[in-house]
Amino acid sequence: MGRDRWYEVEEGGALIVARRWPVRFDLAVATQLPRGGRRYLAHLVRQDVWRALQALRGFVPAVRVTRSGGGLEVVAGGEVQGRFDRVDAEARIAAVLESPANRARWMRRAR
């Protein structure tokens, strides 16, 4: 697997995008989004979460997207090697997921 490759796995009705397999969510934040393209959405969310947490030593992002009701449940987070401030890291992920500008961009592009 090259440096630019990601695991994209369908598991139990969810699409999971992760750098390592098996995936591990040491930290995770969930949100609901309208229905859209799961694969592209997962990669867009992963990129934005990575940008927000790239300074977190040992962070390996992962995103799980599941169809639920009339939309999508998105769980973003990932694995962290070593000690970290969970409250701060999850607050940063939540800020990414709840940003109106991010959500609008994701839904525009994830068709």
Rank of each mutant, 00 (worst) to 15 (best):
M1N: 09
M1G: 12
G2R: 03
G2M: 03
R3K: 12
D4L: 00
R5T: 00
Y7T: 05
E8L: 07
V9K: 03
V9T: 08
E10I: 05
E10L: 06
E10Q: 13
E11G: 15
E11W: 09
G12A: 14
A14V: 12
I16L: 14
V17Q: 01
V17W: 00
A18D: 00
A18P: 02
R19S: 01
R19H: 10
R20E: 13
R20T: 13
R24K: 11
R24Q: 06
F25Y: 12
F25V: 09
L27S: 11
L27A: 07
A28I: 10
A30V: 14
T31G: 15
P34R: 00
P34E: 01
G36W: 04
G37N: 05
R38M: 08
R38D: 05
R39A: 06
R39K: 12
R39S: 07
L41D: 02
L44S: 01
L44H: 04
V45N: 14
V45D: 11
R46K: 07
Q47E: 06
Q47W: 02
V49A: 01
V49R: 00
V49K: 01
V49Q: 03
V49N: 02
V49P: 05
R51N: 10
R51T: 05
Q54P: 09
L56K: 11
R57M: 07
F59K: 02
V60G: 03
V60S: 02
P61T: 04
A62E: 02
A62K: 01
A62D: 04
V63R: 02
R64D: 03
V65D: 03
T66Y: 11
T66P: 13
G70Y: 01
G71I: 01
L72C: 04
L72K: 05
L72Q: 07
E73I: 08
E73R: 11
G77S: 12
G77P: 09
G78H: 05
V80F: 05
V80E: 06
Q81N: 10
Q81W: 13
R83C: 10
R83N: 14
R83I: 12
R83Q: 15
V87F: 15
V87R: 15
V87E: 15
D88C: 15
A89P: 05
E90L: 09
E90K: 09
A91K: 12
A91I: 10
A91M: 11
R92N: 03
I93K: 08
A94L: 13
A94I: 11
V96M: 06
V96F: 11
L97N: 09
E98C: 14
E98Q: 15
S99P: 13
S99L: 10
P100F: 07
A101H: 14
N102L: 13
R103M: 08
A104V: 06
W106C: 01
A110V: 03
